Structure formats: structure tokens, C-alpha cells
Computed example of a mutant assay.
Amino acid sequence: MTFSAPDSKTQTILAAAWAGFSAYGFRKTSMDDIARGAGMSRPALYLHFKNKEAIFRGLVASYYAEAAHEVAAALAQEGALSQRLARAFAAHGGETMEAMMSSAHGMELFEASMNVAGDMIEEGEAQLQAVYGRWLRAESARGQLQMTGEADALGGVFCACLKGIKHTSKSYESYRSGVAEFAALCARALAPLP
């Protein structure tokens, strides 16, 4: 599966759904709430999505498409290895992470993610792992970093550790701090030998 950017009407629906899910939680947000937030009738909403689970899956797809793009862009920027990793790891969670962790319904949204779109999360994480793997191979080939293992496996370690930080953080601030510490640690471990 390849994630692509949604059209403007779909973006409007997804934005309205995200606002509803953040404010009321997944279970309490209705298709009527989403339609109203998107400025359309409920029948018009059903022309785009069959139910709120499909809308939630659309949000997950949109998140991963954006994250893959932003992570790749952050890694491609100039700067110290630690800065590029810090920007990439921050982009991995993106604004969505802040919104989820700041919402009173954040835990419910995390649970809904796994229940409604677990397969898409797995696919999205694989895409992010591949982004990291490609970058690690290219930087290693240029002599910009040293690796002791295989690039795709290390990309998987990045993703797993970032997921661990997300699941153990009590607040968005502690999440950001954990991500920054992890980026610094990885930069030190990957820095080329003098």
C-alpha cells in the first residue's frame, strides 16, 4: 500500500474528523459531527467515507504520508548529524503527536489507532523504516556515519525506539525530551571515527 496526499475535500473532512476526535474522543464523535465540521451534509460525507472507521483510517494514511515526507526532508537538510536526526525524529511524530498527547482523549485515540488501523500503522512504520534505511545506506556510503549493522534493521530500531518513547511518555514535553535525547544518543553512536 502506498499512502498519498488527500484531495482538498478529503482534507477538509479529515480535519473536521480530527477536531471531533480530539474534542470528544473516537467513540463519541458521530458522522453528523464530522459532516457539520466539514460544512457538508451527512449524505455528502457518505459519498467520501462509508463510516468513521474509514475516516480514521484516512487520518492514519495521511499522517504516515506526511511523516515519511517530513522525515526524508529533515534527513536531507544540511547540518550536523545530531541536528538532522533530531529534526527527523521530531518529524516522525509531527504535530499529530502533540495533538494526541494534549487531548483529553489521547489514550482513546491511541487505542482506536491500533484497533481500527493496525494494519496501516504497520505499513506506515515499514515505510518510515525504509526512509531511515535509505538515508543510512547513503550516508554510510559517503563516509558521513559509521554503522555496525544493516541499514534497514537500524531504521527499524529507530522506529521501535520512537514508538517506545511515545508509549512511555506522560506528556508531550516528556515525549519531546525523550526524542531529543534519543537523537543525540544515535548521533554519537553513528558519528564517523576520526
Rank of each mutant, 00 (worst) to 15 (best):
T2Q: 09
P6A: 10
P6V: 03
D7H: 10
S8E: 14
T10D: 12
L14T: 12
A15Q: 04
A15Y: 00
A16P: 02
A16M: 06
A19K: 10
G20C: 09
Y24S: 08
Y24G: 03
R27C: 04
M31Y: 07
M31R: 11
D33T: 13
D33L: 04
D33A: 02
A35M: 14
R42N: 03
R42A: 01
Y46N: 15
H48M: 09
H48K: 02
H48Y: 08
H48A: 05
F49N: 05
E53R: 14
E53G: 11
A54Q: 00
I55D: 11
R57Q: 05
L59W: 04
L59C: 04
V60M: 06
A61F: 08
S62M: 13
Y64E: 05
E66D: 09
E66Q: 08
A67G: 06
H69Q: 14
E70A: 13
E70W: 01
V71L: 09
V71I: 02
V71N: 01
V71H: 03
A72C: 03
A72F: 03
A72V: 08
L75S: 07
A76T: 01
Q83I: 02
Q83C: 08
A86Y: 09
A86D: 15
A86G: 05
R87D: 15
F89P: 01
A90H: 08
H92G: 12
H92S: 14
E98I: 14
E98W: 11
A99G: 06
M100N: 09
M100V: 15
M100G: 02
M101T: 10
S102M: 06
S102E: 09
S102G: 13
M107K: 00
E108S: 05
L109G: 01
A112F: 14
S113R: 14
N115R: 14
N115Y: 07
V116T: 00
I121E: 08
I121W: 13
E122T: 11
E122P: 02
G124K: 00
E125A: 12
A126Y: 00
Q127R: 01
Q127S: 00
L128R: 01
Q129D: 03
A130N: 12
G133R: 07
G133N: 09
W135Y: 10
L136W: 10
L136T: 02
L136A: 10
E139M: 11
S140N: 13
A141E: 14
A141P: 12
R142D: 01
R142H: 05
Q144S: 12
Q144A: 13
Q144R: 15
Q144L: 14
L145S: 02
Q146Y: 06
A151N: 09
L154D: 08
G155K: 01
F158H: 04
C159P: 03
C159V: 15
C159I: 15
C161Q: 11
C161I: 09
K163S: 06
K163Y: 13
K163G: 03
G164M: 05
K166D: 00
K166Q: 08
H167L: 14
S169G: 04
S171A: 07
S171N: 12
Y172A: 08
S174Q: 15
Y175Q: 03
S177G: 06
S177H: 15
A180M: 06
A183S: 11
A184S: 03
A184L: 02
L185W: 06
A187C: 00
R188H: 06
R188A: 10
A189Q: 14
P192E: 01
P192F: 07
P194N: 00
P194Y: 13
P194G: 07
